[in-house]
Design a protein around this nucleic acid. Structure first.
Lengths: 216, 216
DNA sequence: ATCAAGCGAGACGGGTCGTCTCGCTCGGCT
DNA sequence: AGCCGAGCGAGACGACCCGTCTCGCTTGAT
């Protein structure tokens, strides 16, 4: 009973902190669903906070209380979608890149799966919108990378380190650079639509990156 | 004097065709300048057509008459900026990737220059905004790729073909895939801000891509 | 010289923004 | 069990921007 007041009214006065214990779970989910469906139907630019609130059957203030921007709503909604999907499939935790001993085959497997995800119409609209928003807004971009992208990239780092120990990858290489050599080309085609993004392309990237451009 | 009327009122009724011969060059340039400076100052989302018109000292209708969207204005303004810069520097035409016989060195030279361009604050805001807009809007994206990106990429194709003939690159590789192995990692870091984009990184990408990930 | 089309300017209705104000509901505390 | 306060749905509010339209006026082609 020593201190019933807010624990930390301290240093930062800008920190608006609504009481999370009283938050309505029902509204939160309704907002996620409304945001995702609207982005899929009318596109990101035409998706408005008013529209999300209306479809979710929610007051606008409820959205403004918990999220700083339309993009932040969509980011959380998308993260939640991913969690639910992961949880519906296997166990809840993170995945791993398979390690059969054949590095090229393992990378092709996972990059092909990435291709499939990227062209899945259910995910395409929101993830394009989020990526684009993150490109322009550094704060949102950092959150996007940290929560959505980086965990996946770390899986590559782990698999590539194992490959280095097995002697399948040159030990002097930075796994971070190696990983980007594999992933960035797919992202490039997907984002800029320069050429079609296919399994064949994923395979070509793996072969090309592993073997190098110069003759051996 | 056989036909003074509009040459083609034909098939497409949607084609609005203002008379380009009467177009005001002064207004066009003022709009370009206003658009670029506003994007640099307040960011792309807060840049409005009304704002551009006001700063350019131009009626809104003048913008709506000649461009279909805010993004289209910025794309043309950016292209014009590039043309003026190119013209101010060397000759007007396109450049080439140098061919000193040392492929790795040539690629490092041009990729380092690309890095410098990407982090140049004058270009960063508008090119980020355009890329992001193109990611979400396929029509604009296609125009962006065709007019801005593809010409540069073709330079790589040409240089890589020469390298194949010289025996510096495996002859069975698709130059298109090879090029993306080099360029996409830079674009990836620049767009997503995962890690700093430096000359050292450009060099590492070249070495890594040429030599391959596996030991030789 | 003529005259039509582009021009600057700004009014207009429609829509969204972000804030604010209502009662009400409902969870935490006593 | 009863109170209290914070989150809730709903919507009013002023500000802003959209895209269209309508004014005279410039201005370039003929």
């Amino acid at each position: 009973m020593a201190d019933t007041r807010t624990p930390e009214p301290a240093a930062k006065p800008a920190a608006r902190t609504p009481d999370t214990t009283r938050r309505s779970e029902r509204s939160r989910r309704a907002i996620y669903d409304a945001a995702l469906s609207l982005v899929g139907e009318v596109g990101y630019p035409k998706t408005t906070i008013e529209g999300i609130a209306a479809r979710a059957g929610v007051g606008k203030q409820t959205i403004y209380r918990w999220w700083p921007s339309k993009a932040a709503v969509l980011l959380e909604a998308f993260l939640d979608l991913g969690e639910r999907a992961a949880e519906a499939a296997g166990a809840g935790g993170d995945y791993e890149i398979p390690d059969t001993g054949d590095l090229a085959a393992d990378l092709k497997t996972v990059l092909r799966a990435t291709v499939d995800e990227l062209v899945d119409p259910q995910y395409e609209a929101p993830s394009r919108a989020l990526t684009a928003a993150g490109i322009v807004d550094p704060v949102l971009g950092a959150e996007f990378v940290e929560k959505l992208l980086e965990p996946s990239l770390q899986l590559y780092v782990k698999r590539l380190r194992a490959a280095q120990e097995a002697g399948d990858v040159r030990p002097d290489l930075d796994p971070r650079v190696a990983l980007e050599l594999l992933v960035a080309p797919l992202a490039h085609r997907w984002l800029l639509r320069t050429l079609p993004l296919t399994h064949a392309y994923a395979d070509a990237v793996v072969d090309c990156a592993l073997g190098g451009l110069t003759p051996r």
